[in-house]
Design a protein around this nucleic acid. Structure first.
Lengths: 190, 190
DNA sequence: ACCTGAACACCGTTCAAGT
DNA sequence: ACCTGAACACCGTTCAAGT
């Protein structure tokens, strides 16, 4: 059963997808949910808290179910596919957050933990080098995030022939890593 | 000599740095430049055009001078350092742009071209694998961009010990690439 | 406990008018 | 050619009041 709170979140997400953050006004959110423009204040402290709830729901929806053991590469590619498919939600999740919303932080931690476990399995299988799992995960995530974000803003490559897609770059990185001798011990960690 | 147009751009950049995009109001821009709140309309079509001018100036300021031959790794690290030092300008440059401003696109092309040339030199020197330069450049840029953006939003790694900095990840990638046998020919390009 | 309508301060933009 | 002050529509937020 969908609570009023849920329907407000859903209305905000739809408006976000359709017209970007500028289109998410409390007046339109209220209208879409069949309430007045300030009814949302009974469920969220302010507009930012409503958007944080949209972001949390999105992150949680993308975290694999407990017990699942997806491949690291498949997870990274799913991350990129999500960013390209839902650009406004992707940008919202990684946007500016004043109230450090715990729900959002926890959802992000869960997603990252699942990815780290998948990276460890890939290392055991010999598909990824035997580096620190957290740090190698950060490398993979950074490439996927950057490729997706640059593609969305049109800055990944010049217009024209033979552009590499974000998914191509993910493939490239995994290929490079598989045949690499690994990072030097000398590099710092802070 | 600073034109009024320049002083409006400068005022907008300062307000952006100090308080994020929400702090860049035409009223405050005008006040900082000593004019009324709608004087900017004599120099820019609208607020978006003013912000585009701020972004263009920022991109142009980061492009190495004609004839310089900086190292690819140094350019990538400078890119990351810029993002961490001027987060609001970094986010502005890669944000949403409705009017496809030609000035902005051209500045971005110049910056990318300089990086591609540096990547070619590194390939010749044997520091980077002999892949397609444009595609390898996209890989490096995507990692740098993603590492910086995730660090800024606090999503690069969980809080706690031994976090890798964005600069560490750049070092890691260059190290992996140097010892790699290169990407397989089989991977697609679109 | 949840909702509404009026009101407030603020913002981007337009416009008539000035030099 | 450039600037100003008033005005308009819009938005987030608050508040008194209702059930």
């Amino acid at each position: 059963m969908e609570s009023r709170r849920d329907s407000l979140i859903e209305a905000a997400a739809r408006l976000l997808d359709a017209g970007g953050p500028a289109a998410v006004t409390l007046r339109d959110v209220g209208r879409a949910a069949g309430v007045s423009h300030n009814a949302p204040y009974r469920h969220f402290a302010d507009k930012d808290a409503l958007l944080a709830a949209v972001a949390s729901r999105e992150l949680a929806g993308n975290t694999p179910p407990e017990g699942a053991q997806p491949q690291a590469k498949a997870m990274i590619k799913a991350y990129v596919a999500w960013a390209l498919r839902r650009p406004e939600r992707f940008r919202l999740v990684f946007g500016r957050w004043n109230h450090a919303d715990d729900t959002l932080g926890d959802a992000a931690d869960d997603a990252r933990s699942a990815l780290i476990e998948a990276v460890k399995r890939a290392q055991t299988a010999g598909d990824l080098p035997a580096a620190e799992p957290e740090r190698l995960t950060a490398l993979l995530l950074a490439l996927a995030h950057g490729a997706a974000d640059l593609a969305l803003s049109g800055h990944l490559a010049a217009d024209g022939k033979g552009q590499a897609s974000p998914q191509d770059l993910v493939e490239d990185l995994f290929a490079y890593l598989k045949t690499s001798a690994g990072p030097p011990r000398a590099s710092g960690s802070g």
